[in-house]
Amino acid sequence: MSILVDENTRTVIQGATGQGGRRFIQRMIDFGSPPVAGVTPGKGGEVVEGVPVFDTVKEAVEATGCNFSSINVPPALVKDAAFEAFDAGIRNIFMYAERVPLHDAMEIMSYGDEIGATMVGPNSPGIVSPGKYRLGGLGGDKEYVAEIFRQGPVGLCSRSGGMTSTLGYTISQGGLGMTTAVGLGGDAIIGSPFTKILPMFEDDPETRAICMFCEIGGTMEEEAAELIKSGRITKPIVAFIAGRQTLPGFRFGHAGALVEKGRGTYESKVEALTSAGVAIAKNLQDIPVLLKRALGMDENEEGA
């Protein structure tokens, strides 16, 4: 198995006819997991790369039975697109755009949580379940993607878009592979922070270890540590935390002091995750080594 996307995913691309949407569709076709529908208001009836385009998500759902929406519209339009997908009954959405207003993200995630939707992004490069499905262009051209994301037992989740591929490759090169690799999105409010993605990997029978790419700032890692400590997550986890050498900017205003309570720094994240039993990789090359150790494998062993 895998999480979020697999061979049963039927994706509709909202924002199918723009340059970005077209490229997204091409990448998915290239991987062998073409979307089943596209939506662009005013362009119903068109066909993009063989994919039928509808005016509304509701029509797309009725005509194609799509059950996953990839939102590829510009940032100012993401909120409207997300609510259209929810209204059409879709409960899995992915948001690609960078620079979605924070208040919009807050409304989308707040409502999505209320109706039990699963959301990824905004500001995410995509999701890939090796051998099964690719949403977006992670890994680049076809001949490269299989080398960068091999199939295997690791669930990979990353706060950084670019690092999703870099870590995927580090894991593959180290002789392991992934059930699913997901770029969580780089923003302050995202659909699936670690506290939501870790339980998905925990409940996926094929995932046997988890790799997290963390960054300084925010309290996502500290909250994940709390969840792990609660016993909800039992699978071994390896984390890399970026930003040790980065000096934080000065804090602005006083409210942050009350909310953060000293969390958000590199030290705070190392402490929280270590105390929850997570192995911290200091260098990128340590990641596959630590994962193999967690899986009870020999350092030179391949596969699993």
Partner: peptide, 28 residues
């Protein structure tokens, strides 16, 4: 460096080997 998350990671790796980066330049 290329890639923002990667660029921040590289600063850490340089530090791990005792090198002081003079700058940060993410060109991606």
């Amino acid at each position: 460096t290329v890639g923002s998350g990667f660029s921040i990671t590289m600063l850490d790796v340089l530090g791990n080997f005792g090198l002081k980066p003079a700058n940060f330049c993410d060109c991606s």
